[in-house]
């Protein structure tokens, strides 16, 4: 009981400790420092871009978009590979390595 009372007194003491507090002052020559800062405050476009990209919402959204694009590419590739007809699968290498393709000589010299 006594301890509770003592704690309450301490809490009130702490809460009232900032009553009539004097204001603190910044370091001297604040105005000079403000003018100096204004003169040097030329934020480059890259700093702005970095700040924008560095925002958690933008970074998270970009990551999500990147992952979605990757997943889409994987899924689409898989489905197109599965749906390709068997004939086409066998035909493609045959086309690539075909010796029966007509060349310019074949067209010009139709007769042996």
């Amino acid at each position: 009981m006594n301890q509770n009372k003592r704690i309450n007194v301490l809490i009130n003491e702490a809460l009232n400790s900032v009553d009539n507090i004097n204001r603190g002052s910044p370091k001297p020559f604040l105005l000079t420092r403000i003018y100096a800062r204004m003169n040097h405050q030329t934020e480059s476009i890259w700093e702005k871009i970095g700040w924008f990209i560095g925002r958690p919402a933008i970074a998270f959204l970009s990551l999500c978009i990147f992952l979605v694009i990757n997943v889409l590419v994987l899924v689409l590739n898989k489905t197109s590979a599965q749906t390709m007809p068997i004939e086409q699968i066998t035909q493609t290498p045959a086309d690539e390595f075909s010796y029966t393709v007509a060349t310019i000589y074949d067209l010009e010299n139709t007769q042996p």
Binding site: L10, E13, A14, L15, S17, V18, N20, I21, N22, R23, G24, S25
Partner: peptide, 19 residues
Amino acid sequence: DHPGLQLEKKESAAVLFNA
């Protein structure tokens, strides 16, 4: 440590600022 505090209140105020 706030510079505008009275000496006798510094300890209590430090606890308050921490809270």
